[in-house]
């Protein structure tokens, strides 16, 4: 067993900045100290510029949700069947009557509704 030799005494004429004789080196703080300081600082508004690291709970929360079928906003009561020349006739009708195509479509739907109502009255329903 050996005793450590006492540290060399400093020259008395030189003022010591570190009175304990040790150099004033500051070692980088541990992760715990950094996190504690950061938390304390954040409470005072000294917040981090970096986005929060994703934790496992975040991963669960951000997992893609299973898609559910959304209820249709426009139920398909009407089945439209396009036949050859229908589009041309539709465009021609709108042009000849100087109507917007939306208006032509509304007229078409009204006619279909009227026809279905007639079928219901006649008891000719699927």
């Amino acid at each position: 067993m050996t005793d450590k030799a006492p540290p060399e005494s400093r020259m008395t004429g030189i003022t010591s900045f570190s009175d304990d004789g040790e150099p004033d080196y500051i070692a980088p703080p541990s992760r715990e100290v950094r996190e504690q300081a950061k938390a304390v600082g954040a409470a005072m508004g000294f917040v981090s510029d970096k986005p929060l690291a994703s934790s496992s709970t975040d991963a669960i929360e951000t997992a893609p949700k299973k898609r559910t079928r959304a209820p249709s906003q426009y139920p398909d009561h009407y089945n439209l069947r396009l036949r050859t020349g229908d589009r041309e006739r539709f465009d021609d009708y709108a042009y000849r009557h100087r109507l917007p195509k939306g208006e032509v479509f509304r007229i078409m739907l009204d006619l279909i509704e009227e026809r279905e109502a007639e079928q219901v009255r006649a008891g000719n329903v699927d």
């Binding site: 950094r34 300081a37 304390v40 600082g41 508004g45 000294f46 981090s48 510029d49």
Partner: peptide
Amino acid sequence: RASARVTNTLLMTH
């Protein structure tokens, strides 16, 4: 500006 940079720097400051 108040930021975490200030906090971390202080940990290394005399």
